[in-house]
Design a protein around this nucleic acid. Structure first.
Lengths: 194, 194
DNA sequence: ACCTGAACACCGTTCAAGT
DNA sequence: ACCTGAACACCGTTCAAGT
């Protein structure tokens, strides 16, 4: 007998096939069916469900892989920008993502609500908290707000998908929110008058 | 001759029965099935579909009746409050409504997107525009924003349903948005001297 | 152990048959 | 004309049978 415990020869490969197929299918249309995903991944439906017990679990996992880029961006932005500018830059990246991904972030947000007792916070909330905390400590971002508050405020980003001027509208609305989030400084900037 | 064209003896009554049953069922759970609604209304499924050709149409109509209260509130508030305060008061009413109705306003918003070419604006957008325009004309609300922008900004209201401190959180977030929406007056408005 | 795909339960919607 | 409810198409999920 050669292998003692070869638990998953193709199981691991199937998992990847499923995730790749799901990612492609969901990008085309958010309501791709489980059966079509199984077919595209060339696995049986039971296999799909062995790896992801429910549709939501699959969608969530497809997403979590992409979201990590967003999460990683937070500390990088904080390194080279003051907090309030880092927050705005992070919002812009989120807007790009939200535009492409439509309602998928809603799924993530909905599931976060249910896991509040589990881990407390997800990585996205951590990323926001990182920038927010820095800004609050520096006095440039409004105190008394939580990372979850911020996520709620920018939730409109994944709802303006159909329009062609979304970058303009998105920037306009983010301006409003940034003005609400930033703390006015005692006015040091010398503004050139004309 | 008595009746020339008695088109609907019970048809009208069925419509009301359906809407009442749907309102009750949807309040309990947003994904009440069409079949359960037909059963609760004591009509056949075909009758339900004769009155409302699709699930979305039914949900929308159930809602439109409730939303009108919100729409009617706009001019009333404007009558007795300055625009920026009227807007905030209207937001508060919207928050109450959004809290009770969960994702239903999302349906309305989604369908508005599709009707942009039909009538241009729905009554909710009209109500917002009323207050917004007054404030912009008076210089107390930020220019360059549309009623649709405002609706996007407050969209978080129908997403904070599960928590027990929602009035606190809702007020906190509305504060942020209001600060972004209002225009700072650098100098007191034209005070009639002399 | 893991995979397969027919089958189950259920939902939105349709339509032939009633009145 | 309008109503009824069985029936259709389809989807998420399960499970007996394979390897």
């Amino acid at each position: 007998m050669a292998k003692v415990n070869a638990a998953r020869p193709d199981s691991a490969r199937n998992r990847v096939k499923i995730l790749d197929a799901a990612r492609t299918a969901l990008a085309v249309s958010g309501d791709a069916t489980m059966q079509s995903i199984a077919r595209a991944a060339k696995v049986g439906q039971g296999t799909l469900y062995r790896h992801f017990p429910t549709r939501e679990a699959l969608v969530l996992e497809v997403h979590r892989r992409d979201v990590s880029a967003l999460v990683d961006a937070a500390p990088e932005l904080l390194e080279r920008l003051p907090p309030e500018q880092a927050l705005r830059a992070w919002f812009d990246q989120l807007a790009e993502y939200g535009h492409v991904k439509h309602g998928l972030l809603d799924v993530i947000y909905a599931s976060m609500h249910k896991q509040l007792d589990d881990e407390g916070t997800g990585p996205v909330l951590d990323a926001i908290q990182l920038i927010l905390g820095a800004g609050q400590a520096a006095g440039s971002l409004r105190a008394g707000l939580s990372a979850e508050d911020i996520l709620l405020l920018v939730g409109f980003l994944w709802r303006l998908d159909i329009r062609d001027d979304w970058p303009v509208q998105s920037a306009r609305l983010l301006d409003v929110i940034m003005e609400g989030l930033t703390v006015e400084r005692p006015e040091p900037p010398p503004k050139p008058r004309r």
